[in-house]
């Protein structure tokens, strides 16, 4: 079966500083792939390169058989890739409901609606009139995920959704994510916590200094392999 999204020798720069050195990556439809790696390994940069936030060469990123590298971010959403960005980045002057509606801005048809997001995260319905940034961290993360879902993506990308949250809240959020992906949504999950990453994903990539240092089935990788790939020698 062919990949839903793949990258080929993907390189990315911030000005003169090269952050990615040729990443080969693929994810098949309905798969959950986790990316782990130390701070500064290039995980967020990789996601920015896929979603058009950073410019890359066209053939570097292929989605559904078509090269989409270098396409502007606002056009990538319309292709069906949605991102839950690092740090959530809710719109402070918009209410919870308005934040969710922003996710539907690209008007992609599909199953997601406000009602369905409220079904997934009932607490958001009670708080729908409140400014998004007035919620607790976990609730804000729910808004960020719901907002991404509202674009009816084929590929959902989550950048460190557990960062700064209490363990029980993290559990709750991943439980919701499992419900979503069980329905067939494909997802890339960037996660600092290796155990969580292994548990929720079928396959796993480890990044180190802008390169893939390890990849494989999440079940098969040993802790020695992972810690070696994570920290280097």
């Amino acid at each position: 079966m062919s990949a839903l999204l793949s990258t080929h020798a993907l390189k990315a720069w911030y000005g003169d500083f090269q952050a990615l050195f040729g990443i080969d990556f693929e994810i098949r439809a309905q798969e959950i792939v986790a990316i782990i790696g130390a701070n500064g390994a290039g995980k967020s940069t990789f996601l920015k390169a896929i979603t058009g936030v950073l410019p890359v060469a066209p053939g570097n990123v292929v989605f559904k058989g078509r090269p989409i590298g270098g396409r502007k971010a606002h056009r990538v959403v319309a292709e069906g890739i949605a991102m839950v960005p690092e740090g959530r980045r809710l719109f402070p002057s918009l209410s919870v409901e308005e934040n969710l509606c922003m996710g539907a801005y690209a008007k992609r048809p599909g199953p997601w609606s406000l009602e369905k997001v409220y079904g997934l995260f009932p607490v958001l319905k009670e708080k729908r009139k409140v400014p998004g940034t007035a919620l607790s961290g976990g609730q804000q993360q729910m808004v960020a995920i719901g907002r991404a879902l509202m674009s009816n993506p084929e590929l959902l990308i989550c950048d460190e959704i557990s960062l700064g949250l209490a363990p029980t809240v993290i559990k709750e959020i991943y439980a919701a994510l499992e419900r979503i992906t069980r329905d067939g949504l494909t997802a890339i999950i960037v996660e600092q916590d290796v155990l969580t990453a292994e548990r929720v994903s079928q396959r796993l990539y480890c990044f180190q200094e802008g390169r893939v240092s390890l990849q494989g089935n999440s079940r098969d990788l040993t802790h020695e392999q992972i810690s070696h790939a994570y920290f280097g020698v």
Partner: peptide, 24 residues
Amino acid sequence: TRIGRAFRATSDDDGAAALMGINN
């Protein structure tokens, strides 16, 4: 309105707005 929401969102965070499909 939808366009007014887009104005406010872009004003808050143009990068996040682009991720929503807004052409800034």
